[in-house]
Amino acid sequence: MAFAGLAHAAPTVTPPAAEQRVLLARTNLFSSVPQQFHAMLFVSWSDGLRPLRVEMWRGGRDRMLARVLGPRQAGRFLLQVGAEHYLVAPGARQPVKLGAGVAAAGPVSFEQLLGVDVERDFETERVEAGERMVTFHLVARAGSAVARATPRARWVVDRIRRQPVRLDIVLADGRTSRVVEFASFADPRTLVPAKLILKDVLRGGPPMTVELERFEPMAVPDGLFSLTDGAVRAQLPPAPPAP
C-alpha cells in the first residue's frame, strides 16, 4: 500500500486509515473477550517440564485473578487490579504489590494471556500491510497500565479472517522480549483464544503452550479482587488436582 510505504519513511505517529482502525478494533481480543469469566488453562512446555494447571477469573476489563493448581500453591493468587499486580500468599497478611519487573518475570503474565488493549493502551506508530497480514507497530500511551512491562508491541492480524495472529512484546530499546502466537480460537466471534504459544525470545528456553480447557462467561464476585479482605478468595472451592 502506498501510504504504508510513506509511513515507513516518516517514523512519526500517523493515524491509521479508517479501514485499518476498524481492523484493529475488530481484532482487539482484550475488549472483545467477555468482561467477566472463569477459565481453566493447561500450561505445558515442549521439553517435558512438569505442566501446570492455572485457574483464572476476570472481573472487568482490568481485574484478573489467577491461581496455579497444586498442593504447594494452595492459597496463592496472582491479582491484577488496574495497572498494579499483586501476589496473594498465605504467609503474607496483605497482597504484596509486585514491581513491573517482578510481575513480568513469572512464567505467565496476564498480558500474554489476553493480549493487551491495543486500542486503549497503545498508539499506532505505523502500519505495515501485506497481502494478508497487517502489522501494527504500537507504542504504549504514557501512564497506561502496560507502559512499563510492554513499552512497545507489534500486533499482527489476519486481514481476511479478522483475527489476531501474533503479539510481539518489544522493550524500550527495540529488542523483542516475548512472542505470543494465537494458534487457535475457541470462539471466532468473541476471539476467546483456545491455544497460545509463548516464546521467551530474550531469555530463551522452551516454548510454552497454553490451552484453554474450560471457559465460562459468568458474573464474578467483586470480593475476589479485594486488596483488603481475602475472605471471598478463601471461600473458593479447593483447587482441582494438578495435572
Partner: peptide, 16 residues
Amino acid sequence: VTLLAVDLEGMLNALD
C-alpha cells in the same frame, strides 16, 4: 517486612 521469592516450582511466594 515481606519477603518475596520464587519457590521451587518456579512460582512467586511471599512471607511476612
